Simulated scan of single mutants.
Amino acid sequence: MASIDIQHPHSKSPQQAREAVDEVARKLSERFDVSCQWDGDVLNFKRSGVDGCIELQPNQLHVTANLGFLLSAMKSPIESEIRRVLDEKFV
């Protein structure tokens, strides 16, 4: 099982950061049938083959994900896409 662990800085207010993460979660749900649920400042996400979370912290996001056997082979492109979206949404 492969894992992804990304810490990404941001300068958004807590509310702006939460709204941006909500937007990302909506897109994940629509494109990949990912279920998402907030638990405080942590957005947990899950679907077959992957589970993880996005934790809102002051001035940074912490993204973790555990990839199942089939998705482990695609760790590099998945991680690159996560970083691209974070760069786009959290300048």
Results as ranks from 00 to 15, higher is better:
residue 32 F to I: 04
residue 60 Q to I: 06
residue 31 R to W: 06
residue 81 E to I: 07
residue 54 I to V: 07
residue 55 E to W: 11
residue 31 R to V: 05
residue 53 C to S: 15
residue 42 V to S: 02
residue 70 L to D: 07
residue 29 S to V: 07
residue 57 Q to T: 05
residue 43 L to R: 02
residue 39 D to E: 14
residue 82 I to H: 12
residue 47 R to L: 03
residue 71 L to V: 02
residue 45 F to Q: 02
residue 34 V to Q: 05
residue 82 I to E: 11
residue 61 L to K: 07
residue 52 G to H: 00
residue 42 V to G: 00
residue 63 V to L: 11
residue 60 Q to K: 15
residue 27 K to A: 14
residue 34 V to W: 02
residue 77 P to E: 00
residue 51 D to T: 12
residue 47 R to K: 06
residue 52 G to W: 00
residue 40 G to T: 06
residue 48 S to P: 08
residue 36 C to G: 12
residue 61 L to S: 10
residue 76 S to D: 13
residue 63 V to C: 07
residue 52 G to I: 01
residue 66 N to M: 13
residue 81 E to F: 14
residue 49 G to T: 02
residue 49 G to L: 02
residue 35 S to E: 13
residue 33 D to H: 15
residue 59 N to M: 08
residue 54 I to C: 01
residue 30 E to K: 07
residue 28 L to W: 11
residue 58 P to V: 03
residue 61 L to A: 09
residue 54 I to Y: 02
residue 74 M to R: 12
residue 68 G to Y: 10
residue 41 D to C: 01
residue 57 Q to H: 13
residue 78 I to S: 11
residue 33 D to Y: 14
residue 30 E to A: 10
residue 51 D to V: 10
residue 34 V to H: 01
residue 43 L to D: 01
residue 40 G to C: 09
residue 60 Q to V: 05
residue 64 T to G: 12
residue 41 D to H: 02
residue 38 W to F: 03
residue 29 S to L: 05
residue 78 I to M: 10
residue 38 W to V: 01
residue 70 L to Y: 11
residue 29 S to E: 14
residue 49 G to C: 03
residue 74 M to C: 11
residue 48 S to N: 11
residue 45 F to P: 04
residue 72 S to Y: 00
residue 29 S to A: 15
residue 55 E to P: 06
residue 78 I to K: 09
residue 43 L to W: 04
residue 32 F to P: 07
residue 34 V to K: 01
residue 77 P to D: 01
residue 50 V to E: 03
residue 38 W to N: 01
residue 66 N to W: 10
residue 28 L to T: 03
residue 66 N to A: 14
residue 52 G to P: 01
residue 28 L to A: 08
residue 61 L to N: 06
residue 81 E to C: 06
